[in-house]
Nucleic acid binder design. Structure first.
Lengths: 143, 143
DNA sequence: CCCTTTCTCCCCATTTTTCCCCACAATTGT
DNA sequence: ACAATTGTGGGGAAAAATGGGGAGAAAGGG
């Protein structure tokens, strides 16, 4: 389980540290993938990612469908691990996708970790909080 | 398992490098074939390709059917291996089929690798991601 | 049948990138 | 206050990306 929001520098070699607590849950290696829908990079512990990939693959209805699905799932995923200082290297396609320059916001999101650029995160957080507030409103008014 | 999306130059002799991780899984040689259905080149490790060809052959319903199948499978397949720099040479028929000019997108898709032209990949990726997103939606909402 | 041309394959060279290691400052916990 | 951990920055060795050169095989035309 990953919690919290942390800010880290991305050095000019594209390396990002993760919080020590996160590393300990990911020492077997991680899978980097594009955040589905959002402009961020998703970081999964390998086991968690395999579980997800399997449950997706079983939804394929035809061979052509499965090929396409594999392309989407595996094509956007990169396998990597930590260096001696607890950093991971961001592949260029992913860094571009998330628009991450020299600062990354590292966000714990239950079963995965997400990396955001400062700008995208600010926008996402604002809209997330607004939506959450609305949901809470409707919940409370229906009591 | 093949992961990720990588961009490589195709030199004027039609040679394409593959990522080092892919080479290590393919050092016994590879089979190049037309992507079934899609405008791409499929690259299989020999063992994986044999497994596939066998499983197809056992489903042939008549001898004539089997002959036709063999022609289709083996006729468009090329056996090759890596040169000293980790490149494979693309036979002309395949390069034409995939419309690959001077840049190839190398996509890991689980048990195989695919080579795409920039344009075809852009289109395919968009539709593949859309499909995946739909499935993810249904997964999440069914939880 | 032989010569020419093309293509393939293998080797070498250069630049770029990646990876692994070390160093130091800042922070945390004891 | 001290020791250990963590954030940040680089240096240097190794690997990888890219580009050609040239020998030999295959193809094609006279």
């Amino acid at each position: 389980m990953f919690f919290g929001e942390h800010t880290y520098k991305v050095d000019d070699k594209g390396r990002v540290p993760l919080p020590p607590k996160f590393r300990r849950e990911m020492k077997d290696g991680v899978i980097l993938a594009k955040g589905t829908g959002e402009k961020c990079v998703a970081v999964y512990p390998v086991l968690e990612w395999k579980r997800m990939a399997d449950s997706l693959a079983t939804r394929a209805v035809t061979p052509a469908h499965l090929r396409k699905l594999n392309r989407a799932i595996f094509g956007s995923a990169f396998s990597t691990s930590f260096d001696g200082q607890g950093r991971i290297a961001l592949p260029h396609p992913l860094r571009d996708h998330a628009g991450i320059a020299d600062t990354a916001i590292v966000v714990g999101a239950n079963n995965r970790v997400e990396l955001w650029s400062e700008d995208e995160w600010k926008a996402e957080k604002a809209s997330a909080e607004e939506q959450a507030a609305q949901i809470i409103e409707t919940l409370e008014s229906s009591q």
